[in-house]
């Protein structure tokens, strides 16, 4: 991946994928499936997780920013935007840091990102309402998110294998 165009294309495709996964998730998983308000499976985190490994810090943060902005532009409301921006950025930073330590597998990194996401969400909510009581709700969201993070990691493993092989294929050099 030395070619600049190839890089940009790859980043663009990944951004599109994360956006599509966000929308697809909203469509195929009914809002009431999980009894925890504010909780989502976060399928698009597959893309973020893989980007963190394949592309590094700047493109990963860029993908999060673009995805959040695009969802907002397609008819999200302002508070939901602030929630997902806070959560999304914290999550990607957490994943980048955990990856740098080289202590953890894809599973640990994903779970860490998910946990950071829920902490970011609750913090944004508490900030907007001025009510610290919202933090009492953190454990439920946090534990559900960690479980979701592990599931995301599980889904990411075969996809990561495929993409890693793809980018390292002879033709891509």
């Amino acid at each position: 991946m030395k070619n600049r165009t190839a890089k940009l294309t790859a980043w663009g495709v990944m951004t599109a994928l994360s956006l599509v996964l966000t929308v697809a998730e909203a469509m195929i998983i009914p809002a009431g499936l999980f009894p925890i308000p504010g909780f989502r499976l976060g399928l698009s985190n597959i893309v973020i997780l893989i980007s963190v490994y394949l592309f590094g810090a700047i493109p990963s943060v860029g993908i999060v920013l673009l995805r959040t902005l695009a969802v907002f532009a397609f008819g999200g409301n302002l508070s939901a935007f602030l929630f997902s921006l806070c959560g999304g950025l914290l999550a990607v930073f957490a994943m980048l840091v955990l990856r740098q330590t080289k202590l953890f597998s894809l599973f640990g990194v994903s779970a860490g990102g998910a946990a950071a996401h829920s902490i970011g969400q609750i913090s944004a909510g508490a900030f907007l309402t001025g009510s610290a009581r919202l933090f009492l709700y953190l454990p439920f969201l946090l534990w559900a998110s960690i479980a979701a993070g592990l599931l995301i990691a599980l889904l990411s493993v075969p996809i990561y294998r495929a993409l890693d092989a793809f980018f390292k294929a002879p033709g891509s050099e």
């Binding site: 490994y53 955990l98 990856r99 202590l103 953890f104 597998s105 894809l106 599973f107 640990g108 990194v109 779970a111 860490g112 946990a115 902490i119 933090f135 009492l136 953190l138 454990p139 439920f140 946090l142 534990w143 960690i146 592990l150 493993v157 990561y160 294998r161 890693d164």
Partner: peptide
């Protein structure tokens, strides 16, 4: 290359993260 297998250190991390929820 990331480790693609769930390891002992992951488990420690997850338990630590889960504990954060009790702080509030």
């Amino acid at each position: 290359r990331p480790g693609l297998r769930f390891g002992f250190r992951d488990l420690v991390l997850i338990i630590a993260l889960a504990m954060i929820g009790v702080i509030p």
